[in-house]
């Protein structure tokens, strides 16, 4: 019964996503939604390593930038076809994640986060300063739009919307597979505590590294999409404030839940879009909200709901059917 409800909910979301272009008033709305999807995809990755595995990676936006710049540099400076460059975005980020992971994941808790904060800065500064590779602060201009695949062309906002939506759905589906499997349980055991997980025979390094690489693969993929969608890149996308944004999406929706990043990543940008005056000062409101959430609703909307439902289901008989 419960599973059926969940399935129904997901199908409804899917249908909503599919018909959204027909409900949206204009192309601007489509662009906002597509951008939100791209960040949701990256946030799914952050949620895997932070929400499910308990390692807070503050360089996540840096890895997204690595994916984006992979596409930008290859297509603009080396005339590599878009899709070939795009396919490389995730693996390049994951490969970099491998090397950074084997060093950083030996550190525990706060040390890992501070280390990755520094990694994020290094990525940002390298992108900003290494002009011969990244065009520095000028940025990369004129990234080609995704080239047509057979009859499918990606030259309209609507087509691009569906492209991004497609990757989000695939990303969500794969994430669902991961977190509901034994592998996901392994990650969660690590989140609960290194010592206990290790005493249960879980190889910490191998599993943390896997979670980290998967997580930055998502970031790289999202970056690749971003490059093809926005078609302009500057060092700013590597900034740590984007990691903070994603943290907020994750926390508002529910950290360590599948739906959480989706919910947070869609509602927060729409709220800021609607309240234009908020744009510049959004953290005047969201900063305190973040603090209040952490103190009073640490598991977010979805996490609290799931716990409430599970508690209800565990009750002996009767009252659970309201």
């Amino acid at each position: 019964m419960m599973r059926l409800n969940a399935k129904l909910g997901w199908i409804m979301l899917l249908v909503l996503g599919l018909v959204f272009p027909f409900l949206a008033g204009n192309d601007y709305h489509l662009t906002v939604m597509s951008t939100a999807y791209i960040y949701v995809l990256a946030t799914l990755g952050l949620n895997l390593v932070t929400g499910y595995t308990g390692q807070y990676n503050l360089a996540h936006a840096g890895f997204m930038a690595v994916g984006a710049y992979t596409v930008g540099i290859l297509t603009v400076d080396y005339q590599v076809p878009f899709w070939i460059a795009f396919v490389l975005a995730g693996p390049v980020a994951a490969l970099l994640g491998f090397f950074i992971g084997i060093v950083s994941l030996r550190l525990k808790g706060h040390y890992f986060s501070i280390f990755t904060l520094c990694v994020g800065y290094i990525l940002f500064l390298v992108i900003e300063k290494w002009e011969s590779l990244t065009h520095g602060t000028v940025g990369i201009i004129g990234i080609p739009a995704p080239s047509p695949i057979g009859p499918l062309t990606f030259d309209s906002p609507r087509a691009l919307y569906y492209l991004v939506f497609f990757f989000l759905v695939v990303g969500l589906w794969v994430m669902h597979r991961i977190v509901s499997s034994l592998l996901g349980r392994t990650f969660m055991a690590i989140r609960n505590g290194d010592d206990l997980a290790e005493s249960l025979g879980i190889n910490l390094m191998r599993n943390k590294l896997l979670a980290f690489m998967l997580s930055v693969f998502y970031a790289g993929l999202a970056g690749g999409l971003y490059a093809g969608f926005v078609r302009f890149l500057g060092p700013g996308i590597a900034g740590v404030e984007h990691t903070f944004d994603m943290t907020m999406y994750m926390l508002v929706g529910g950290i360590g839940t599948l739906l959480g990043p989706v919910l947070g990543g869609l509602t927060v940008p729409w709220i800021t879009q609607t309240l234009q005056w908020l744009q510049e000062y959004r953290f005047l409101v969201f900063g305190p909200i973040l603090v209040l959430l952490v103190i009073f609703v640490p598991h977010g909307i979805v996490g609290s709901f799931i716990a409430w439902r599970a508690r209800k289901a565990a009750q002996p008989h009767g009252s659970g059917h309201a």
Binding site: Y56, H110, S113, F244, T247, F283, G287, P288, L290, V294
Partner: peptide, 18 residues
């Protein structure tokens, strides 16, 4: 340990915006 870290970030963002 995760939650105070995120809360600190919330304070940071708030003060900068302020």
């Amino acid at each position: 340990p995760l939650h105070p870290m995120i809360a600190a970030i919330g304070v940071l963002l708030f003060l900068e915006a302020a």
